[in-house]
């Protein structure tokens, strides 16, 4: 059974119809990717899952529980955690305080400690810089921090919004390594990416979105072979 299901979702920004009947599902322990051009509705789909955007029609369900009526901060307690686009770490807070904020919903101090250790094992860089003000970190470190912050909340499903955005190729590789590692540890991940080539390499399945509509959904392998995908999103002729 699917862990997270999005069913016939319609969402609007004012009068603009941003998502037109989007449906997708993610199984437990799976990496699913959502690819598409700028403004196609990738981030909007993600926002309907995390509750930052309320769908006008349709539903989002986590293990059968309807999330549509819940507010964003309540969805967090269900374990759907978003790493926002453009990192958006708390720039004035230290690395450690950022991680603490990630565990805001967790009141168990022991659990927080365990999670911090986990994050530091995953990103040793963050441990080195734990007292540094987060705004002074490099772009790659900030992405690590944004992911670490999300992991602090014990995610059932991790929603990653463009983790490779604005990073040097070397750093992109290392971020994707981390995604693979999280996958191996059993985390369920929805990966929104413009870098389709990288995304399809780590994902098991993918959805292609154009102007608010899912135009294609298949296994990652098939999508990599698909001519339309190769032309439109992987820059081949």
């Amino acid at each position: 059974m699917a862990m997270l299901e999005v069913e016939n979702v319609h969402a609007y920004y004012g009068k603009i119809h941003a998502l037109k009947d989007i449906s997708l599902n993610i199984d437990k322990g799976e990496i699913v990717t959502l690819i598409g051009a700028n403004g196609a509705g990738k981030s909007s789909t993600l926002k309907t899952m995390s509750g930052l955007l309320r769908p006008r029609q349709g539903s989002v369900r986590l293990e059968g529980e309807d999330l549509t009526a819940l507010r964003a901060h309540e969805i967090v307690t269900r374990g759907v955690i978003q790493v926002p686009e453009g990192r958006r770490i708390f720039g004035q807070l230290t690395v450690m305080e950022n991680l603490d904020m990630g565990a805001f919903t967790c009141r168990d101090k022991q659990q927080i400690k365990t999670n911090i250790d986990k994050v530091f094992i995953l990103f040793p860089r963050l441990q080195e810089r734990r007292r540094q003000v987060a705004g002074t970190l490099s772009g790659g470190e900030q992405q690590m921090l944004a992911m670490g912050r999300a992991l602090m909340a014990n995610p059932q499903v991790l929603l990653l919004d463009e983790p490779s955005m604005g990073l040097a190729p070397v750093l992109v590789d290392s971020i994707f390594d981390t995604i693979r590692r999280l996958h191996k540890e059993g985390t369920t991940i929805l990966l929104v990416e413009q870098n389709a080539r990288m995304a399809l390499q780590v994902a098991s399945r993918g959805y292609v979105i154009q102007t608010g509509v899912v135009v294609l959904s298949d296994s990652a392998e098939n999508l990599q072979k698909n001519e339309m995908v190769r032309k439109a999103y992987m820059g081949e002729n």
Binding site: S50, G51, L52, R71, A72, H73, V76, T77, I81, Q82, P84, R88, F90, G91, Q92, L93, E97, D100, M101, G102, F104, T105, R149, A153
Partner: peptide, 23 residues
């Protein structure tokens, strides 16, 4: 806890909400 929630909200309202803070 409330103080930290305020601090997070001051920095970024949307993200604060995505961290589970009741805005």
């Amino acid at each position: 806890r409330l103080g930290r929630a305020w601090m997070a909200m001051r920095e970024d309202e949307d993200v604060a909400q995505a961290m589970g803070i009741n805005l």
